[in-house]
Design a protein around this nucleic acid. Structure first.
Length: 522
RNA sequence: GGCCCCUUCGUCUAGUGGUCUAGGACACCGGCCUUUCACGCCGGCAACACGGGUUCGAGUCCCGUAGGGGUCACCA
């Protein structure tokens, strides 16, 4: 049997991090078994703008490298992959269900159903529809129609016994049929509802494994009922634990952003993102720009592999040690048997830790490539870039070492890209390290002359020269280093000082030192 | 509330009756390295929800309790 899995997003306009985890597991399972992964659009409930609301989701998956074998934009043998365009298939299924007696037309109004529901509730009893407005024959239907009533189609669910089914993750689960409702599968306007559509599509698209979030577990009995009534072969089911909020056991949702912001780590991540976004002149619409949405990570320069690696470990593990996986390793090792049952909460700090490690391992060339678009968007480098950009950026990334944790962090080092006369000085640091530091102005003035005359302006030579200077003057190295740093970068912190000087080059260093001295004296 | 699911350090997890004085990772706290920051290195703190069984022996099996969560639509 070919393994075929699917992810069925609703076109909501954004790709949720919890959804990515579910999609990832489906994708991995298909890949691990040489099968196919498909994307199907659950738009039975949407009216307009499906394309616009779907695009960010497709873009998100593309960016993450989660590709689909069949679905929107790529097509496939079971097209269309939009539920809104598959109405005829659902209609046939409804008719088949009606004929077999697994479903019936129901002429109750929503108020009447609601009244039954409420009286059951008040009596402290479980609601079971009386089927008073059920029509199983044409005569019954005609009578209701003559009253001006309209019909929906309901499932005629069993009311005794229980369903026992084996879930690949949860093991054997039992549901008494008596707890099930006669769910509506077709509305008055003849459009069909999710459960019917989902079951029909899964069968039609030959889905072998339905891997989805736990919240669907209680939907499974009615779906199995539909599938069996239609004579479909049942897929295997695997219900994943949901992804919980940072620091709680509630399901992660986009709606509660304000609440998550009270979580320190979550807020820090968002603030970090905003710092980058601000320099990119990006609008930070919190509908999209927040750490629950994939787009957030894309915009500030996370590595897709880091996100996937982190998400993989949210509810799954290989053993007691291995945490880092390449894509191929993920595919090789993934199995549903090792998926956990308990929900796992989203930990921004650990995500960031994966990002840090992935960035550290990224070869210099790739790091340069990741960082470049951010400098272009911020307006520091032209697009296309001048030909000396590559070497220059390589030097900077090399000197930056592990300081660039997210590609957008490059913007923290804008001082390498702005004109000397536009360099901003951090006043506090300037005061502490130059204006008010004993002898600092004098020392810097003298050291400037050494810089002006040193033959080779490279890091190694500069280090020797500075150490000579320190020895001669009998000062501590800190007395000159900090003054030089603030003079050439405007900041208190940065890369190694000698690398910084070498990258900027003699002229710019001297110009900046002069400007700083000027500023302090005036 | 009914039904269903879940329960090991703050967090993600390892653990399938003895090797568990419970292992790893992130975070946190010390220290080292150091021109700042970051990295790195060393060390530390920290958990089997509770109560009964079963067993020579239980984190691991059974029952109960508690807690948490999901779901109960002409949403998906």
């Amino acid at each position: 049997m070919t393994v075929r899995t699917r992810f069925a997003p609703s076109p909501t306009g954004y790709l949720h991090i919890g959804g990515v985890r579910t999609a990832l597991f489906n994708w991995l399972y298909a890949k691990a078994h040489g099968g196919q992964f498909l994307l199907r659009v659950d738009d039975t409930d949407q009216q307009r703008n499906v394309d616009a609301a779907l695009q960010p989701i497709l873009d998100g998956f593309r960016w993450l490298g989660i590709d689909w074998d069949e679905g929107p934009e790529v097509g496939g043998p079971h097209a269309p992959y939009y539920q809104s365009q598959r109405g005829d298939k659902y209609q046939s299924a409804v008719e088949a269900l009606l004929i077999s007696g697994a479903a019936y037309r129901d002429f109750a109004t929503t108020d009447e159903i609601q009244a039954e529901r409420e009286s059951a509730h008040q009596a402290g009893k479980q609601f079971t529809y009386s089927r008073r407005w059920m029509a199983e024959t044409e005569e019954e239907a005609a009578a209701f129609i003559s009253e001006g009533r309209q019909a929906v189609v309901r499932l005629k669910m069993p009311r005794t016994g229980e369903l026992i089914h084996h879930d690949l993750i949860r093991g054997e689960v039992r549901f008494p049929w008596a707890n099930e409702q006669d769910h509506v599968i077709q509305r008055v306007d003849k459009t069909c509802l999710y459960h019917l559509a989902s079951v029909v599509d899964d069968a039609d698209m030959q889905i072998s494994h339905v891997i989805r979030a736990e919240e669907h577990l209680s939907n499974t009995p009615r779906q199995i009922f539909i599938a069996q009534s239609l004579g479909f072969l049942l897929p295997e089911y695997a219900h994943l634990p949901y992804v919980a909020e940072p620091g709680s056991k509630h399901k992660l949702s986009k709606r509660k952003l304000d609440k998550y912001l009270k979580n320190k780590d979550f807020a820090e991540l968002k603030a970090h993102g905003e710092r980058i976004a601000e320099r990119l002149h990006l609008a930070v619409d919190s509908e999209v720009f927040n750490p629950v949405i994939v787009d957030f990570y894309q915009q500030i320069g996370f590595l897709p592999d880091a996100i996937l690696n982190y998400l993989l470990l949210l509810g799954w593990s290989l053993d007691d040690k291995t945490e880092e996986f390449t894509r191929d390793e993920m595919i090789e090792h993934f199995s549903l048997e090792r998926v956990n049952k308990a929900p796992a909460s989203f930990d921004p700090q650990k995500l960031v830790a994966f990002q840090d490690r992935a960035m550290q391992k990224l070869p210099l060339k790739q790091k340069v490539a990741k960082v470049l678009p951010f400098l272009q968007t911020a307006g520091y480098i032209d697009n296309p870039p001048p030909c000396d950009t590559g070497p220059y950026l390589s030097q900077i990334c090399e000197a930056a070492g592990d300081r660039i944790k997210i590609a957008g962090d490059i913007l923290d080092y804008e001082d390498f890209f702005i004109a000397d006369e536009k360099l901003q000085y951090d006043e506090k640091t300037l005061g502490k390290r130059l204006r008010n530091a004993v002898n600092a102005v004098q020392l810097l003035t003298e050291f400037r002359e050494r810089l002006a005359s040193v033959k080779a302006f490279d890091a190694a030579t500069l280090e020797v020269k500075l150490k000579e200077f320190v020895a001669e003057k009998e000062i501590k190295i800190g007395e000159i280093v900090h003054a030089v740093r603030v003079a050439v970068t405007g900041k208190a912190v940065g890369f190694g000082l000698f690398e910084t000087l070498a990258i900027l080059g003699r002229e710019r260093c001297l110009a900046r030192i002069d400007r700083a001295l000027q500023k302090v004296k005036s």
